[in-house]
Design a protein around this nucleic acid. Structure first.
Lengths: 155, 155
DNA sequence: CTTCATGTAACTTATGTTGTTTCAAGACTC
DNA sequence: GAGTCTTGAAACAACATAAGTTACATGAAG
């Protein structure tokens, strides 16, 4: 089962936007993510609904942050991107009336819920500003590896 | 993203097998899971490799437990069924050289690894016998809801 | 030697995600 | 107002993966 990378991608974009002067167009962002502009709009729409970004049409338009990185957590973006399913594996429902199946699903659900609770509580404690700080630290160590050097994101 | 229900299904089957006299054919199992025999063989093959079940061809053949339920944990079956991916969401790899992406993925991986560790450690502590006991308790409470009453599994 | 059952390969179907095309509509420049 | 840049959104195609199906070989019991 393949991973959904939308969360990771959006975090990536948001941090770049923070360092970017002016609005970023869907096309610029798409180039950064190796994807295409329509997909970017589709995914960013979720973030816009929650106010984490705003978009403007027309000349000079594009996407801007709706609030500082310090006021967005991983959990916020996770929810905005719309991923109710954390786990790739889950309970079956082949014979809902079967008490064996019920016992199995109870055991699994308990374990999954506990792990999900831990994951989301962790997500809630990490702000995008924390990640940006980590980026700065990496940048200081490896200044040569600047991000997207040729893409106009860090002139 | 859809759930993979193979783990749940296999647990279901194994517990039924424990209560079942003689070998269970792929066809019987398939009926129980609302699927078909070839899919059953495919999935059970993983369990056979690890010795949790054995199979016999020919008349009177089918599947049998390879060891008592008390000697199989959720973790064992999880691994046998071959699901390296616990999570439905994961890191992107669009610009591996980008330090922002690296910082994002580091933050995500840390959280995911911690949650996975918790989940698997929990899995390791639950045996199938534990689940079977829970089934017995449910059975005592709701004797009418017997499992797969018409399918020949609990005559 | 017939029947029953697994083992396996190849193919089809179903589902969901991603990518693409297309056009409408708003906003800025001239 | 004309032209251009940009998002919004719908409709469609392409792709990947899991699940289901078909077909046939192999082995074991009667």
């Amino acid at each position: 089962m393949r991973h959904d990378s939308r969360l990771s991608r959006m975090l990536h974009v948001l941090i770049h936007m923070d360092r970017h002067e002016g609005a970023a167009t869907s096309e610029t962002i798409a180039a950064m993510l190796n994807t295409n502009p329509v997909v970017v709009r589709r995914t960013m729409a979720g973030l816009r609904e929650k106010g984490y970004v705003s978009s403007e049409k027309g000349h000079g338009g594009g996407w801007r942050l709706g609030r500082p990185l310090s006021e967005m957590t991983l959990l916020d973006i996770y929810e905005a991107v719309g991923e109710p399913a954390v786990f790739a594996v889950g309970p079956a429902c082949d014979q809902p009336a079967c008490l064996v199946e019920q016992a199995v699903n109870a055991a699994l659900s308990e374990a999954f819920e506990e792990a999900e609770k831990l994951l989301l509580s962790r997500f809630g404690k990490v702000t995008l500003a924390d990640i940006a700080r980590d980026f700065d630290a990496r940048m200081a160590r490896y200044p040569a590896s600047a991000a997207h050097a040729g893409a106009g994101w860090h002139s």
